[in-house]
Design a protein around this nucleic acid. Structure first.
Length: 591
RNA sequence: GCCGGCGUAGCUCAGUGGCAGAGCAGCGGUUUCGUAAACCGCAGGCCGUGGGUUCAAGUCCCACCGCCGGCUCCA
């Protein structure tokens, strides 16, 4: 069961199957109907764009100056109007027009005018009308408004015109529409389900981590969360050992001398925490690479030593803009399973191939099925020669091809110092997150004057590969929590076993069993509260403890424990030795 | 940073100008029980922070902080 790979990011893929195609029509049409309804309340409303999306549609609008902003409370009346329009079953009428006509028709619609001006002259322009409403639109649509069988307006949000923060802020109304009420209900149920898996909620409920205004967007890992965090690191450390990485420990704070040299002072300072001490300016590190470059430079390296792989779990701080933080997935304080590989140019491709295999192995183990690989190619603004970029991009692409991996080349998205591979997964609510990354860097070796002595004695420049499997541990944990709905595999579970004594007199035996498990390295506890066993079983299951061992007279007598799983499955009584062996095996096999 | 919403007990939430509430959790007691919530009782509050309006503010207004939904950005 290997993770399926899709070359395209889901949110950008054009649907090909009939149902998705139908929904796209329905949603696109619903967006027109919504604009129509909105216009009946605000005749002067300026319409921008109203496309279908993966799970619904939206329309970006600008209300006339002085109009109060739309809020959630305005949605019901808009929905009501939409229902009337749908009931009237207006036909959608398609009409092609020439550019001049279009510009006249939309003379008073500045956003539409801009759209028209942006469409290449040779492309035809078209209109879609229903009832008395006409919009510039490529389509396709349903035949008539009556085909929009079920819809719901979801939310109102702000959005910049054309996604550029220098442009006007528009209001975006989100809605969704389906071919049947049942499908809509199903969708709403899924949303509710996703809410239950939200890692922020589960993190609180399971006491994994907390946040506090005294450290905005910076998680406090509570004891249980710290266990999971450290288990992840322990796993990564094993891989480091296996694959020839050397772990290093580097300072947290550096003088701006370093940040100027690395380029961060010019390119990244708005994301850094800077301060003065002793009349010098310092910055808290947002990345580990400069420190690793310095460590590489302690002496001249022979070509025989390369590749050198420095791994670092150093804590990074990035000052993220206030509106962008999100639970564990976008924080200001975090660590990565970060490593920099200093390699000879001829070693680059082999390193990438090995990395890809390690990456797939890791993701397979965590059970992620929906992985997207993005190959980010040279941006406009970049350092280095074209030959260098050709070689670097080819190295990444060849490695992907050699490993039969699908990927989406994305021009212009690379870092200024080199192209990169980004590994994205989708969370429970369909949001896409970047986790792992691999970047080729020709700039850092230049800036830090990194060298090695080649076979012929000449001095050569190594290439640096930045790479992470999990990305940020924090973000990975957040995605993992949602992916698993908080039910960690045994090896990651903060509490792996809870002993439930049936009556007080069985507590002593329960502790005996626990100490045997703890001795073997299992995280086991006795629930010795003065409560009934029913409650204790319930609580253990709500806390997603994988093994619940119930012990009473029979078990104490026979030296057994009744095994109940968090799923509710009752596996019956087993000898303590057998239970212990089973749990140990789960842990050792990381299941 | 920008647009909008929200902030009341540990948690989930009610209270919309007139005495701060409920359920769960917590604590005390009773119950000692065979696989998802026993019963009784007791406590628990700078209503995010600061200012303002008012005879009176959890409630109305302003600012700030934080969170949530988006935009932009990103590990």
């Amino acid at each position: 069961m290997s993770p399926s790979l899709s070359g395209k990011e889901g949110s950008h893929s054009k649907s090909s199957d009939p149902l998705s195609e139908k929904r796209e029509r329905i949603r696109h049409s619903a967006s027109h109907v919504m604009a129509d309804a909105l216009r009946s309340f605000y005749p002067e409303v300026q319409l921008a764009i109203g496309p279908p999306t993966d799970d619904g549609f939206y329309y970006d609008v600008l209300l006339p100056p002085g109009t109060p902003q739309l809020t959630l409370e305005d949605l019901p009346k808009i929905e009501e109007k939409m229902r009337q329009i749908i009931k009237a079953d207006h036909k959608f009428i398609y009409k092609e027009i020439d550019r001049k006509e279009a510009l006249e028709l939309f003379a008073k619609a500045p956003f539409k005018k801009q759209i028209i001006e942006g469409i290449p002259a040779e492309e035809k322009l078209s209109l879609y009308s229903h009832g008395g409403f006409t919009d510039l639109c490529e389509g396709p649509h349903v035949n008539s408004t009556g085909e929009i069988k079920a819809f719901k307006l979801m939310s109102v949000a702000g959005a910049y015109w054309r996604g550029d923060e220098h442009n006007a802020m528009l209001q975006r109304i989100y809605g969704t529409a389906f071919e049947s009420q049942a499908a809509l209900d199903d969708h709403l149920k899924n949303l509710e389900e996703a809410l239950k898996r939200d890692h922020r909620k589960l993190g609180k409920d399971l006491e994994l981590f907390m946040f506090d205004p005294v450290a905005p967007a910076s998680p406090f890992f509570l004891p249980k969360g710290a266990i999971v965090y450290n288990e992840l690191i322990k796993y990564i450390r094993e891989l480091y050992k296996k694959y020839g990485y050397q772990e290093v420990i580097t300072p947290q704070i550096f003088s701006t001398d370093l940040w100027k040299r690395s380029g961060h002072y010019d390119n990244y300072i708005e994301n850094m925490y800077m301060f003065e001490a002793d009349d010098r300016e310092f910055g808290v590190k947002p990345m580990n690479c400069p420190a690793h470059a310095m460590m590489y430079s302690i002496r001249i390296h022979s070509y025989r030593e390369l590749p050198i792989r420095f791994a670092d779990f150093g804590r990074l701080h990035r000052f993220e803009r206030s509106g962008v933080t999100h639970g564990l997935t976008r924080v200001r304080s975090f660590a990565q399973d970060d490593a920099h590989i200093f390699a000879r140019p001829d070693q680059v491709q082999a390193e990438i191939t090995v990395f890809l295999n390690q990456f797939m192995e890791t993701y397979h183990m965590f059970g992620f099925g929906d992985i997207f690989i993005r190959l980010s190619l040279r941006p406009e603004k970049r350092t280095g020669t074209d030959e260098m970029w050709d070689r670097a991009e080819a190295a990444l692409e060849n490695a992907l091809k050699a490993n039969n991996l699908k990927y989406a080349p994305t021009p212009g998205e690379g870092a200024f110092y080199g192209p990169k591979l980004d590994f994205l997964v989708k969370d429970a609510i369909g949001r896409e997150w970047q986790l792992g990354t691999l970047q080729l860097d020709y700039s850092l070796p230049e800036r830090f004057n990194l060298e090695y002595a080649a076979e012929d004695g000449s001095i050569m420049r190594p290439v640096v590969i930045h790479r992470a499997w999990l990305g940020s541990i924090e973000r990975f944990l957040g995605i993992l929590i949602e992916h698993l709905a908080g039910a960690f595999p045994v090896w990651l579970s903060p509490v792996q076993v809870v002993l439930v004594p049936i009556a007080d007199r069985h507590t002593e035996y329960a502790f005996k069993v626990v100490s045997e498990l703890v001795e073997a390295g299992v995280r086991a506890e006795v629930d010795d509260r003065k409560e009934r066993m029913n409650l204790k079983i319930r609580d253990a299951q709500l806390k997603k403890v994988p093994y619940i061992l119930v012990v009473g007279d029979k078990e104490a007598e026979a030296g057994t424990a009744s095994v109940r799983m968090r799923t509710g499955e009752d596996k019956g009584a087993k000898s303590v030795a057998d239970v212990k062996a089973e749990i140990m095996q789960m842990i050792n096999e990381r299941k």
